[in-house]
Design a protein around this nucleic acid. Structure first.
Length: 422
RNA sequence: GCGGGUGUAGUACAACGGUUAGUAUAUAAGUUUUCCAAACUUGGGACGGGAGUUCGAUUCUCCCCACCCGCACCA
């Protein structure tokens, strides 16, 4: 973990938020390479789950929502956990988890402090006047922005059934203790789908979505052996869910939740119907009664994905007896696709030719870096560390045969390729 | 939020109640270099923040902030 945190800082992937002021707990900023890695991940996800399908529709809802949304979803009550502390063993517990005033940790009775409120939502005030009616929250999940737009999408797109809605965006939770680098932050990004199904089909669709997760794991290079399914027992499930599977990943700090797949029933749409007075139903095109769909929710944390990818791809080996560390990122995720260099930098004709190749590659692929620092071996190592799949070196032969050396990150093998075929 | 620990260049570390805070690496400029971290020269770069003790604090004390470990929490 220390290697990864250090690498992220040194090479411009991820920095501590507000660092020059001593930081702000639970916030992280993405640097030049990090933001590209992140975009590559969200773009790949969007392509796979939205663009490549004809049953999925994207939205990008506002982070601020009418406070009634959070009342209907149960967040203003369910997210407000009164905590008490046992004065004997200093354990902090949710008040509603205590039976008979007895501490489940040390067994002492009647030793609890007064309950303190812990609101997991960031409260804010919308508009110039701060009063109760102006209170809103930074959304603690992106899902509600999908439910509140269900009717809009049905009315504007007329989708066939079943269909889903997808969203990538920020969510905020005032975590009691942010931990483990970007794993648990107070501000984070989610890639979320609400897939609407008929109640009778939920189990089959749940299984289908489980399969989709494994396609995704493969696409981003997470080995199956590092992923574990956890069938979340009822006592640990959210109030709305009848079945939840956590996909846990072997992080350096232990096996922890990476993604979740939940069957949310019709809990959300039903509550929003009741609360808003609007019909949130789907009318079958082939005729039949309008109904409130049930929901399968696959949810993917972006920041956790980045951490998992870095963990899975961080490798060390030896080249000519020297230790080498590299990121074996899948091509689709690598923030830099190619590094172009002249073999040596004090020969103008080499540099000129290399600049030409660099210019052409940059124009075509965008994520291409120029590097003429030091010697070729060092440049390879530096490129390895940030996961560049291929390095291109222009040498003296290039001036004769218009071919270059292409060196592979994972195998360190070199091949000769014509410039026209790059 | 509780208990414990840590905080010194970008990174990883060192030293010190007192002259110019050191090493490696990274980085910048230059010389050199014909395929996997070569060498040399030169340059820039740090005591997390604030109080206190002291003639003098990066060093000791307290508070704050952040990070790490454990506990609890994680809708």
């Amino acid at each position: 973990m220390e290697d990864i945190v250090s690498l992220c800082k040194r090479r411009g992937f991820i920095f501590q938020g507000s660092e020059i002021y001593g930081g702000l707990a639970g916030t992280w900023d993405y640097g030049p390479l990090g933001v590209t890695l992140k975009r590559n991940i969200t773009n790949l996800w969007w392509k796979m789950f939205v663009e490549d399908r004809d049953d999925m529709f994207g939205v990008d809802a506002a982070i601020l929502m009418n406070q009634k949304v959070w009342q209907a979803s149960g967040h203003t009550t369910g997210f407000n956990d009164p905590l008490v502390e046992c004065s004997e063993c200093k354990t902090r517990l949710r008040q509603d988890h205590i039976e008979n005033d007895k501490c489940p940790n040390c067994g002492k009775v009647g030793k609890f402090s007064e309950p303190r409120q812990f609101n997991m939502m960031f409260k804010t005030s919308v508009g110039p006047v701060e009063d109760e009616s102006s209170t809103s929250y930074l959304r603690p999940e992106t899902a509600q922005g999908i439910f509140t737009n269900f009717k809009n999408v049905v009315d504007s797109i007329y989708p066939d059934f079943p269909f889903g809605m997808a969203q990538v965006g920020k969510a905020f939770r005032n975590e009691i203790s942010p931990r483990d680098f970007v794993f648990r932050g107070r501000e984070f990004e989610q890639m979320e789908i609400e897939y609407f199904v008929e109640e009778k089909d939920w189990e089959a669709d749940f299984e289908k979505w489980k399969g989709e997760f494994y396609k995704w794991f493969e696409a981003i290079g997470l080995p199956k052996s590092m992923v574990h399914e956890l069938d979340v027992p009822e006592s640990d499930r959210a109030h709305y869910s009848k079945k939840t599977i956590d996909f846990e990943f072997d992080f350096p700090f232990g096996k922890s939740e990476l993604y979740g797949l939940a069957y949310r029933t019709d809990f959300d749409l039903k509550n929003h119907e009741k609360s808003s007075g609007k019909k949130l139903q789907y009318t079958p095109k082939e005729g039949g009664q309008p109904f409130v769909p049930h929901v399968i929710e696959p949810t993917f944390g972006v920041d956790r994905t980045i951490l998992a990818v870095l963990v899975a791809c961080y490798k060390e080996d030896e080249v000519n007896g020297e230790k080498r560390s590299f990121l074996a990122l899948p091509d689709a995720l690598a923030p830099v696709q190619y590094v172009v260099s002249p073999l040596v930098k004090n020969k103008p004709e080499l540099v000129k030719k290399a600049r030409e190749v660099y210019g052409a590659m940059k124009k075509k692929y965008g994520a291409v870096l120029w590097d003429d620092n030091s010697n070729v071996g060092k440049r390879y190592r530096r490129a390895d560390e940030i996961g560049v799949p291929k390095c291109i070196t222009i040498d003296f032969d290039t001036l004769e045969d218009d071919a270059v050396t292409v060196r592979d990150r994972d195998t360190t093998k070199q091949t000769r390729v014509k410039i026209s075929e790059l």
